[in-house]
Amino acid sequence: MELLNALVAFTNFVGVPAIAYGSQLAIGALGVTLVYSVLRFSNFAHGDTMAFGTMVTILFTWWFQSAGVSFGPLPTALLALPLGIAVTMLLVLITDRTVYRFYREQKAKPVVFVMVSLGVMFMMNGLVRFIIGPGDQRFSDGERFIIKARAFKQMTGLDEGLAIKTSQGITVVTAIVVVALLFWFLNKTRTGKSMRAYSDNEDLALLSGINPERVVMYTWLIVATLATIAGVLYGLDKSFKPFTYFQLLLPIFASAIVGGLGSPIGAIAGGFIIAFSEVTITYAWKKVATYVLPESMAPDGLVQLLSTDYKFAVSFAILIIVLLFKPTGIFKGKSV
């Protein structure tokens, strides 16, 4: 019984949040990795692309809510999501046409691309703050919980409750669907195959008649989709604030690099590694420890390895360890 309680407490405070956060990071890191493997640069504007997509989705959500449209127990934001994705796709394509294409034709060095993406980041950040303001926005509605802590206690008779938020459930389901679709697209469709070919060897791909502009366009469309989905899921789970999305860049980059930049499977694995380490290291283990250990050994303090404010330090430390010992990441990425 004690062990079971410990397990439930662990799942409630570490397992479920980390799986949800990990899925959000994984979808974000997939976007970074795709840009990296096809366009060959680290996109610093990714966090702000997420913010933009989420903002558009929020605006449509508010419009739906005011028109009385709802999605039953699910958040209205899911209805607005396709519209958000469409607008983000448009923005990203415009950015590519007006900004990035010029440097592609020049065959500019990757670091120039990174610099350009900084400019894009600034503009998107300014745009988002200009339209929706810098403050916190909550936009989740519908049923808040799939399982409530009290209902779980009554159901099982345990002392510890297990709560699963609707947003967490949606996150995991969406992540599975998105990843399955993406892998199907990359491995089975003609366009997906040409994307992979282009990413593996640009010259050979060009030689076999693949149209590079088409590959780049599809990449941006997918990246816009992934960024918006990741952003909306994160916003539903926590809340939307432009600056937080900018700060998500670090764990997302860390996930992509830890998994191996350019490797989609690596991005997913990296997302979960970063999320689980962040949550376990900053979680106060007192509750779990009191259940597992005999009474005489029960801890006095919180048994928290690091305070929650250091969660960036955790992703950073993992990043550094991977850079030191395996710079190509766990699943051999590119190291150009």
């Binding site: 680290s42 990757p110 990174v114 980059f253 860390a254 690099i257 950073f316 990043l319 550094i320 850079l323």
Partner: peptide, 10 residues
């Protein structure tokens, strides 16, 4: 080169 950027950001 990008790794230095990400490491310094962190």
């Amino acid at each position: 080169s990008d790794y230095l950027a990400i490491a310094t950001l962190g």
